[in-house]
Computed example of a mutant assay.
Amino acid sequence: MEVRKDGGGESLPPSTRLHLAAAFFLPPRFTPARVRYDRRYRKLDQYRFIVWFLFLPLLVYLLFVVSPFLQAFFYSMTDWTGYSANYNFTGFENYERLWNDDKFWDAMVNSLVLVVLAPVITLALGLFIAFMLNAGGRRGRSQAVSGVFGTGFYKIVYFFPQVLSIAVVAVIWSRIYSPRSGILNEGLGSVGLDSWRQEDWLGGDLARWCVLAVLCWSFVGFYVVLFSAAMGSIPREIYEASLLDGAGRSVTFFRITFPLTWDTIRTGWIYMGIQALDSFALVNVMIPEHGMDVVPSYLFEKAFRDGQAGYATAIGVALFLVTLAFAVLMMLVGRRERIEF
Protein backbone atom coordinates (compact mmCIF):
# COMPACT_ATOMS: atom_id res chain seq x y z
CA MET A 1 0.00 0.00 0.00
CA GLU A 2 1.48 3.33 -1.06
CA VAL A 3 1.78 6.21 1.38
CA ARG A 4 0.52 9.43 -0.21
CA LYS A 5 0.53 13.07 0.84
CA ASP A 6 -2.61 14.94 1.82
CA GLY A 7 -2.77 17.10 -1.24
CA GLY A 8 -1.84 14.87 -4.12
CA GLY A 9 -1.49 11.43 -5.57
CA GLU A 10 2.32 11.42 -5.57
CA SER A 11 4.00 8.68 -3.52
CA LEU A 12 6.22 9.62 -0.63
CA PRO A 13 9.93 8.97 -1.15
CA PRO A 14 11.47 6.02 0.70
CA SER A 15 13.24 8.29 3.20
CA THR A 16 9.94 9.94 4.21
CA ARG A 17 8.29 6.57 4.59
CA LEU A 18 11.16 5.48 6.78
CA HIS A 19 10.78 8.65 8.87
CA LEU A 20 7.05 8.00 9.14
CA ALA A 21 7.71 4.49 10.45
CA ALA A 22 10.38 5.76 12.83
CA ALA A 23 8.10 8.56 14.06
CA PHE A 24 6.28 6.03 16.20
CA PHE A 25 9.39 5.86 18.41
CA LEU A 26 10.53 9.49 18.10
CA PRO A 27 9.35 12.52 20.10
CA PRO A 28 7.56 15.13 17.93
CA ARG A 29 10.46 17.61 18.16
CA PHE A 30 12.79 15.15 16.41
CA THR A 31 10.32 14.31 13.66
CA PRO A 32 11.01 16.02 10.29
CA ALA A 33 8.49 18.71 9.34
CA ARG A 34 7.54 17.00 6.07
CA VAL A 35 6.37 14.00 8.14
CA ARG A 36 4.96 15.90 11.12
CA TYR A 37 2.36 17.71 8.99
CA ASP A 38 1.23 14.63 7.12
CA ARG A 39 -2.28 13.43 8.01
CA ARG A 40 -0.98 9.91 8.51
CA TYR A 41 1.41 11.18 11.14
CA ARG A 42 -1.45 12.79 13.06
CA LYS A 43 -3.22 9.43 13.17
CA LEU A 44 0.02 7.74 14.14
CA ASP A 45 0.57 10.29 16.91
CA GLN A 46 -2.83 9.44 18.39
CA TYR A 47 -2.08 5.73 18.58
CA ARG A 48 1.47 6.36 19.77
CA PHE A 49 0.21 8.21 22.83
CA ILE A 50 -2.13 5.34 23.72
CA VAL A 51 0.53 2.66 23.23
CA TRP A 52 3.24 4.43 25.20
CA PHE A 53 0.78 5.31 27.95
CA LEU A 54 -0.12 1.62 28.36
CA PHE A 55 3.35 0.21 27.70
CA LEU A 56 4.67 0.09 31.27
CA PRO A 57 1.46 -1.26 32.89
CA LEU A 58 1.17 -3.91 30.18
CA LEU A 59 4.82 -4.85 30.63
CA VAL A 60 4.35 -5.29 34.38
CA TYR A 61 1.15 -7.28 33.79
CA LEU A 62 2.84 -9.57 31.27
CA LEU A 63 5.84 -10.08 33.54
CA PHE A 64 4.06 -10.76 36.82
CA VAL A 65 0.66 -12.17 35.72
CA VAL A 66 0.79 -13.70 32.25
CA SER A 67 4.31 -15.12 32.57
CA PRO A 68 3.56 -17.20 35.72
CA PHE A 69 0.45 -18.60 34.02
CA LEU A 70 2.49 -19.68 31.00
CA GLN A 71 5.11 -21.24 33.28
CA ALA A 72 2.35 -23.08 35.13
CA PHE A 73 1.06 -24.59 31.88
CA PHE A 74 4.59 -25.74 31.07
CA TYR A 75 5.35 -27.26 34.49
CA SER A 76 2.00 -29.06 34.48
CA MET A 77 3.43 -31.20 31.66
CA THR A 78 6.49 -32.28 33.64
CA ASP A 79 7.29 -34.55 36.58
CA TRP A 80 8.88 -31.70 38.56
CA THR A 81 9.01 -32.41 42.31
CA GLY A 82 9.32 -28.78 43.39
CA TYR A 83 12.48 -29.52 45.40
CA SER A 84 14.90 -29.95 42.52
CA ALA A 85 15.82 -28.14 39.33
CA ASN A 86 15.61 -31.40 37.38
CA TYR A 87 12.44 -32.51 35.64
CA ASN A 88 11.31 -34.51 32.61
CA PHE A 89 8.69 -33.53 30.08
CA THR A 90 5.75 -35.95 30.37
CA GLY A 91 3.17 -34.39 28.07
CA PHE A 92 -0.43 -34.83 29.21
CA GLU A 93 0.24 -37.61 31.72
CA ASN A 94 -0.61 -35.36 34.67
CA TYR A 95 -3.94 -34.46 33.11
CA GLU A 96 -4.74 -38.12 32.43
CA ARG A 97 -3.95 -38.88 36.06
CA LEU A 98 -6.11 -35.94 37.10
CA TRP A 99 -9.06 -37.27 35.11
CA ASN A 100 -8.87 -40.62 36.95
CA ASP A 101 -8.14 -39.21 40.43
CA ASP A 102 -11.17 -39.78 42.69
CA LYS A 103 -9.80 -37.56 45.46
CA PHE A 104 -9.44 -34.68 43.03
CA TRP A 105 -13.06 -35.07 41.91
CA ASP A 106 -14.24 -35.19 45.52
CA ALA A 107 -12.39 -31.94 46.15
CA MET A 108 -13.84 -30.46 42.95
CA VAL A 109 -17.39 -31.39 43.99
CA ASN A 110 -16.84 -29.68 47.35
CA SER A 111 -15.52 -26.57 45.59
CA LEU A 112 -18.45 -26.50 43.15
CA VAL A 113 -20.96 -26.84 46.00
CA LEU A 114 -19.36 -23.81 47.64
CA VAL A 115 -19.19 -21.80 44.41
CA VAL A 116 -22.87 -22.44 43.66
CA LEU A 117 -24.39 -21.99 47.12
CA ALA A 118 -22.08 -19.46 48.82
CA PRO A 119 -22.85 -16.56 46.41
CA VAL A 120 -26.60 -17.30 46.50
CA ILE A 121 -26.82 -17.34 50.30
CA THR A 122 -24.33 -14.54 50.95
CA LEU A 123 -25.70 -12.12 48.37
CA ALA A 124 -29.30 -12.85 49.32
CA LEU A 125 -28.56 -12.10 52.99
CA GLY A 126 -26.49 -9.05 52.04
CA LEU A 127 -29.28 -7.67 49.84
CA PHE A 128 -31.97 -8.26 52.45
CA ILE A 129 -29.99 -6.70 55.29
CA ALA A 130 -28.81 -3.76 53.17
CA PHE A 131 -32.38 -3.09 52.03
CA MET A 132 -33.65 -3.12 55.61
CA LEU A 133 -30.83 -0.78 56.66
CA ASN A 134 -31.54 1.66 53.84
CA ALA A 135 -35.23 1.47 52.96
CA GLY A 136 -36.87 -0.99 55.33
CA GLY A 137 -37.62 1.29 58.27
CA ARG A 138 -40.79 3.11 59.20
CA ARG A 139 -41.78 6.22 57.33
CA GLY A 140 -40.70 9.34 59.13
CA ARG A 141 -42.05 12.84 58.98
CA SER A 142 -38.98 14.22 57.25
CA GLN A 143 -38.20 11.16 55.12
CA ALA A 144 -40.53 8.92 53.18
CA VAL A 145 -37.88 6.19 53.05
CA SER A 146 -35.40 5.38 55.80
CA GLY A 147 -33.57 2.45 57.32
CA VAL A 148 -34.34 0.64 60.54
CA PHE A 149 -33.35 2.19 63.85
CA GLY A 150 -29.63 1.79 64.61
CA THR A 151 -28.52 1.41 61.00
CA GLY A 152 -24.98 2.68 61.63
CA PHE A 153 -24.47 0.28 64.53
CA TYR A 154 -25.71 -2.70 62.53
CA LYS A 155 -23.35 -1.91 59.65
CA ILE A 156 -20.40 -1.99 62.04
CA VAL A 157 -21.56 -5.28 63.60
CA TYR A 158 -22.10 -7.00 60.26
CA PHE A 159 -18.79 -5.74 58.87
CA PHE A 160 -16.79 -6.85 61.92
CA PRO A 161 -15.83 -10.33 60.52
CA GLN A 162 -14.09 -8.56 57.63
CA VAL A 163 -11.65 -7.03 60.11
CA LEU A 164 -10.55 -10.48 61.27
CA SER A 165 -8.01 -12.58 59.40
CA ILE A 166 -9.52 -15.63 57.71
CA ALA A 167 -7.16 -17.81 59.79
CA VAL A 168 -8.55 -16.25 62.99
CA VAL A 169 -12.09 -16.86 61.74
CA ALA A 170 -11.21 -20.51 61.05
CA VAL A 171 -9.75 -21.00 64.54
CA ILE A 172 -12.79 -19.39 66.21
CA TRP A 173 -15.25 -21.56 64.31
CA SER A 174 -13.23 -24.74 64.84
CA ARG A 175 -13.71 -24.12 68.58
CA ILE A 176 -17.42 -23.48 68.06
CA TYR A 177 -17.76 -26.77 66.17
CA SER A 178 -15.72 -28.72 68.74
CA PRO A 179 -17.75 -31.84 69.74
CA ARG A 180 -16.67 -31.77 73.40
CA SER A 181 -16.57 -28.13 74.47
CA GLY A 182 -17.95 -26.26 71.45
CA ILE A 183 -20.64 -23.63 71.83
CA LEU A 184 -22.77 -25.26 69.13
CA ASN A 185 -23.20 -28.62 70.89
CA GLU A 186 -23.57 -26.97 74.28
CA GLY A 187 -26.18 -24.58 72.92
CA LEU A 188 -28.19 -27.38 71.31
CA GLY A 189 -28.09 -29.32 74.55
CA SER A 190 -29.21 -26.33 76.63
CA VAL A 191 -32.41 -25.89 74.56
CA GLY A 192 -33.29 -29.58 74.59
CA LEU A 193 -32.05 -30.49 71.10
CA ASP A 194 -29.64 -33.21 72.21
CA SER A 195 -30.52 -35.31 69.19
CA TRP A 196 -29.00 -32.61 66.96
CA ARG A 197 -25.64 -32.76 68.67
CA GLN A 198 -22.85 -34.25 66.57
CA GLU A 199 -19.68 -36.10 67.50
CA ASP A 200 -17.84 -34.73 64.49
CA TRP A 201 -19.16 -31.58 62.84
CA LEU A 202 -16.04 -31.14 60.73
CA GLY A 203 -15.83 -34.63 59.29
CA GLY A 204 -17.78 -36.47 56.62
CA ASP A 205 -20.66 -34.88 54.73
CA LEU A 206 -21.32 -32.27 57.43
CA ALA A 207 -17.94 -30.61 56.86
CA ARG A 208 -18.85 -28.92 53.57
CA TRP A 209 -22.01 -27.43 55.09
CA CYS A 210 -20.07 -26.16 58.11
CA VAL A 211 -17.52 -24.55 55.82
CA LEU A 212 -20.35 -23.06 53.75
CA ALA A 213 -21.91 -21.51 56.87
CA VAL A 214 -18.60 -19.97 57.97
CA LEU A 215 -17.86 -18.70 54.47
CA CYS A 216 -21.23 -16.94 54.25
CA TRP A 217 -20.94 -15.54 57.80
CA SER A 218 -17.48 -14.10 57.18
CA PHE A 219 -18.38 -12.30 53.92
CA VAL A 220 -21.98 -11.19 54.36
CA GLY A 221 -20.91 -7.99 56.15
CA PHE A 222 -18.81 -6.91 53.19
CA TYR A 223 -21.81 -7.20 50.87
CA VAL A 224 -24.06 -5.39 53.33
CA VAL A 225 -21.74 -2.38 53.08
CA LEU A 226 -21.30 -2.78 49.31
CA PHE A 227 -25.02 -3.01 48.61
CA SER A 228 -25.76 -0.21 51.06
CA ALA A 229 -23.47 2.06 49.05
CA ALA A 230 -25.22 1.01 45.81
CA MET A 231 -28.68 1.59 47.31
CA GLY A 232 -27.61 4.93 48.74
CA SER A 233 -26.95 6.16 45.20
CA ILE A 234 -30.56 5.51 44.12
CA PRO A 235 -32.49 8.80 44.12
CA ARG A 236 -35.01 8.96 46.98
CA GLU A 237 -37.57 10.46 44.62
CA ILE A 238 -37.95 7.05 42.95
CA TYR A 239 -38.83 5.42 46.26
CA GLU A 240 -41.18 8.26 47.17
CA ALA A 241 -42.99 7.97 43.85
CA SER A 242 -43.45 4.23 44.32
CA LEU A 243 -44.82 4.75 47.83
CA LEU A 244 -47.32 7.28 46.51
CA ASP A 245 -48.47 4.63 44.03
CA GLY A 246 -49.08 2.23 46.93
CA ALA A 247 -46.06 -0.06 46.50
CA GLY A 248 -45.09 -2.14 49.53
CA ARG A 249 -41.63 -3.24 50.62
CA SER A 250 -41.53 -6.37 48.47
CA VAL A 251 -42.66 -4.52 45.34
CA THR A 252 -40.20 -1.71 46.07
CA PHE A 253 -37.37 -4.20 46.43
CA PHE A 254 -38.04 -6.31 43.34
CA ARG A 255 -39.15 -3.47 41.04
CA ILE A 256 -36.74 -0.72 42.09
CA THR A 257 -33.87 -1.75 44.37
CA PHE A 258 -32.94 -5.04 42.72
CA PRO A 259 -32.88 -3.77 39.09
CA LEU A 260 -31.00 -0.57 39.96
CA THR A 261 -28.30 -2.43 41.90
CA TRP A 262 -27.93 -5.29 39.42
CA ASP A 263 -24.46 -4.27 38.18
CA THR A 264 -23.17 -4.30 41.75
CA ILE A 265 -24.85 -7.65 42.40
CA ARG A 266 -23.25 -9.20 39.33
CA THR A 267 -19.80 -7.97 40.35
CA GLY A 268 -20.34 -9.23 43.88
CA TRP A 269 -21.47 -12.61 42.54
CA ILE A 270 -18.24 -13.06 40.59
CA TYR A 271 -16.10 -11.92 43.51
CA MET A 272 -17.90 -14.19 45.99
CA GLY A 273 -17.64 -17.14 43.62
CA ILE A 274 -13.88 -16.68 43.36
CA GLN A 275 -13.67 -16.42 47.15
CA ALA A 276 -15.59 -19.69 47.44
CA LEU A 277 -13.23 -21.42 45.00
CA ASP A 278 -10.25 -20.07 46.93
CA SER A 279 -11.28 -21.36 50.37
CA PHE A 280 -7.89 -22.92 51.11
CA ALA A 281 -7.10 -21.06 54.35
CA LEU A 282 -10.52 -21.73 55.85
CA VAL A 283 -10.43 -25.47 55.07
CA ASN A 284 -6.76 -25.95 55.92
CA VAL A 285 -7.04 -24.35 59.37
CA MET A 286 -10.56 -25.35 60.42
CA ILE A 287 -10.95 -28.88 59.03
CA PRO A 288 -8.92 -31.77 60.53
CA GLU A 289 -6.68 -33.74 58.19
CA HIS A 290 -8.66 -35.90 55.72
CA GLY A 291 -11.93 -34.37 56.98
CA MET A 292 -12.58 -32.52 53.74
CA ASP A 293 -10.66 -31.21 50.75
CA VAL A 294 -11.30 -28.45 48.26
CA VAL A 295 -9.23 -28.03 45.12
CA PRO A 296 -6.73 -25.50 46.60
CA SER A 297 -6.13 -27.65 49.72
CA TYR A 298 -5.65 -30.78 47.58
CA LEU A 299 -3.20 -28.82 45.42
CA PHE A 300 -1.27 -27.78 48.54
CA GLU A 301 -1.17 -31.38 49.76
CA LYS A 302 0.27 -32.69 46.50
CA ALA A 303 2.80 -29.89 46.10
CA PHE A 304 4.25 -29.60 49.61
CA ARG A 305 3.45 -32.87 51.36
CA ASP A 306 3.87 -35.36 48.52
CA GLY A 307 6.48 -33.44 46.51
CA GLN A 308 4.52 -33.66 43.25
CA ALA A 309 4.74 -30.06 42.05
CA GLY A 310 4.12 -30.97 38.41
CA TYR A 311 0.87 -32.74 39.25
CA ALA A 312 -0.09 -29.95 41.65
CA THR A 313 0.44 -27.44 38.86
CA ALA A 314 -1.94 -29.43 36.66
CA ILE A 315 -4.51 -29.16 39.47
CA GLY A 316 -3.86 -25.41 39.53
CA VAL A 317 -4.47 -25.20 35.78
CA ALA A 318 -7.79 -27.02 36.25
CA LEU A 319 -8.74 -24.60 39.02
CA PHE A 320 -7.83 -21.66 36.77
CA LEU A 321 -10.05 -22.97 33.97
CA VAL A 322 -12.98 -23.52 36.35
CA THR A 323 -12.58 -19.99 37.76
CA LEU A 324 -12.35 -18.51 34.28
CA ALA A 325 -15.42 -20.43 33.11
CA PHE A 326 -17.37 -19.27 36.16
CA ALA A 327 -16.45 -15.62 35.61
CA VAL A 328 -17.26 -15.73 31.89
CA LEU A 329 -20.56 -17.52 32.55
CA MET A 330 -21.63 -14.94 35.12
CA MET A 331 -20.68 -12.08 32.80
CA LEU A 332 -22.77 -13.60 30.00
CA VAL A 333 -25.75 -14.55 32.17
CA GLY A 334 -25.79 -11.24 33.98
CA ARG A 335 -25.36 -9.07 30.88
CA ARG A 336 -28.22 -6.72 30.13
CA GLU A 337 -28.97 -3.17 29.07
CA ARG A 338 -27.57 -0.64 31.51
CA ILE A 339 -30.18 1.31 33.49
CA GLU A 340 -29.44 5.01 33.88
CA PHE A 341 -30.96 7.04 36.70
Rank of each mutant, 00 (worst) to 15 (best):
R255A: 10
W80M: 04
R266C: 15
K103N: 08
G140F: 04
W262D: 10
S279R: 00
I238T: 01
F160W: 13
R208C: 07
A72P: 06
I287A: 05
R39G: 07
M231T: 09
S228E: 14
V145Y: 13
C216F: 09
M330F: 07
R197Y: 04
L62F: 01
S84G: 06
R97S: 06
V283E: 04
V317S: 08
Y298R: 07
G221T: 11
P27W: 07
L59N: 04
I129E: 13
R36V: 03
T264Y: 15
F326H: 05
A241W: 10
R255V: 06
N100S: 14
N86I: 06
G192R: 14
R34W: 00
A230S: 15
D194K: 10
L212V: 10
F300K: 01
A241M: 07
E237L: 03
G291E: 09
S250P: 01
D102V: 15
F227K: 13
T78L: 07
I256E: 13
V120E: 10
Y37R: 12
Q143M: 13
V116G: 04
L321N: 09
F53H: 01
E240N: 14
A281Q: 12
L112Y: 00
A325S: 13
S279D: 04
G152F: 03
D102Y: 11
D79I: 04
G140E: 12
K43G: 06
R305I: 14
D293P: 00
L226E: 14
V109Y: 08
E2V: 04
S67F: 01
R175V: 12
V51M: 05
Y75E: 00
P288T: 12
E289G: 01
F69M: 05
T90C: 01
A33M: 11
F73D: 00
L114K: 07
I238F: 05
P179M: 11
V113Y: 05
G248M: 13
P288M: 09
H19T: 02
W262Y: 15
P27E: 05
A85L: 09
W80D: 06
F258D: 10
L58D: 00
Y271K: 12
Q162G: 14
V191K: 09
A241F: 12
F74H: 03
R197C: 08
F280W: 11
Y95G: 00
D6Y: 13
V171T: 14
W80V: 00
I315C: 13
E2P: 06
V283S: 04
S76I: 01
T31A: 07
P28W: 01
V115T: 08
P14L: 04
T252G: 13
I274F: 08
V148K: 02
D306P: 00
D293N: 11
L226A: 12
S233M: 11
S15N: 00
Y47P: 02
V35R: 03
T78E: 04
E301D: 14
F227N: 15
Y37W: 11
I129R: 10
V169G: 00
I238G: 01
